[in-house]
């Protein structure tokens, strides 16, 4: 091993190389077949006026794109999606962070609380949506009846998208919290001790120790949640009936994609909408990557 320069591999290195690849192979195959290839197929499809059952596709160049850019429904859906993301992401991160810090202390029934907060994550999204649909129901719903309100939570175009975002926050809290908890456990206790000796209060050490040291985790959660929020579909689909007057002002881009691709059977137009979403997601993520240099600290 002393004579460097040549990458002559020892038996051990070879075996590590082989096994390493072997271990990631299943995941790689899965990614390629289920994600990478479909992405390119989708882009390819967006240049076609698709025929029934994938037969008889006609190449139309950028026609779908020029239609998408002129379609007010698409832009409205983009606005809806952004509204959803702007509410869901910050709140779900902030609340989860506070909960994680509170539940990271030694206290009675800690694991019970953790389990309860994580539970929505385990429940099927369809079931979650059904329960919330009932809670939000303007005539028979629990919320309106308990508080004697008459708010059309999910059918008033002005507030429906935020009501849906509340469901999103509620169901993702536990997941974010668990990620933050694991991040918090990486922070050595000495820092807090030193800080308290210097007279720092809990709040101060939260902002000056916890947040900076947790920033890689926060960044990871932020990036994945933004992407997740831009792809929101199941909540709108399950909670909103097709005859809902607020649907226009609530439907997300993926919902619109579903409508065109699977209900109206216009795969080409649907594909164009998701390509638009893909581009937007990439732009947002690139900006976040650039922005992280300003606030994320890696040890």
């Amino acid at each position: 091993m002393a004579n460097s320069g040549k990458p002559a591999k020892t038996g051990r290195e070879k075996s590590e190389f082989l096994w390493g690849w072997l271990f990631i192979l299943p995941t790689v195959i899965g990614l390629v077949i289920l994600n990478i290839i479909p992405i390119f197929q989708t882009i390819y499809q967006s240049f076609f006026k698709t025929g029934d059952f994938g037969k008889g596709n006609i190449f139309v160049g950028f026609e779908n794109y020029s239609k998408v850019f002129g379609d007010s429904e698409v832009w409205q859906s983009l606005i809806n999606t952004l509204k959803y993301a702007v509410v869901e992401v910050p709140f779900s991160i902030a609340i989860a962070l506070v909960l994680a810090v509170l539940l990271n202390r030694k206290m009675r029934g800690r694991s019970v609380y953790r389990t309860i907060i994580f539970l929505p994550m385990v429940a099927a999204p369809a079931a979650v949506a059904m329960v919330w649909r009932w809670l939000f129901n303007s005539d028979f719903g629990l919320i309106n009846n308990v508080f004697h309100l008459n708010v059309k939570w999910i059918s008033d175009p002005k507030i429906a998208v935020y009501a849906v975002a509340v469901i999103g926050i509620w169901s993702i809290l536990g997941y974010n919290m668990v990620l933050f908890l694991s991040g918090l456990q990486e922070i050595p206790g000495d820092y807090y001790e030193a800080a308290s000796i210097d007279g720092a209060t809990g709040i101060k050490s939260f902002f000056h120790i916890t947040i900076p040291l947790l920033s890689p985790t926060i960044f990871f959660v932020l990036v994945t949640r933004v992407i997740g929020a831009l792809q929101v579909f199941d909540l709108m689909y399950m909670v909103m009936d097709k005859s809902n007057p607020a649907l226009d002002k609530t439907q997300s881009l993926v919902y619109l994609f579903y409508k065109y691709a699977f209900i109206n059977k216009n795969m080409g137009y649907g594909a164009t909408i998701v390509v638009l979403l893909l581009i937007i997601t990439m732009i947002v993520t690139v900006f976040q990557m650039i922005g992280q240099k300003k606030w994320v600290f890696y040890n």
């Binding site: 990631i24 289920l34 994600n35 992405i39 499809q45 594909a271 893909l278």
Partner: peptide, 23 residues
């Protein structure tokens, strides 16, 4: 370990394909 990796692929299969407008 192989078995675990296999299971991971299966779970990817379950969540993947969400935004694939393909056939």
């Amino acid at each position: 370990a192989l078995g675990l990796a296999g299971a991971m692929v299966l779970s990817t299969a379950a969540c993947g394909g969400g935004d694939s407008g393909s056939s």
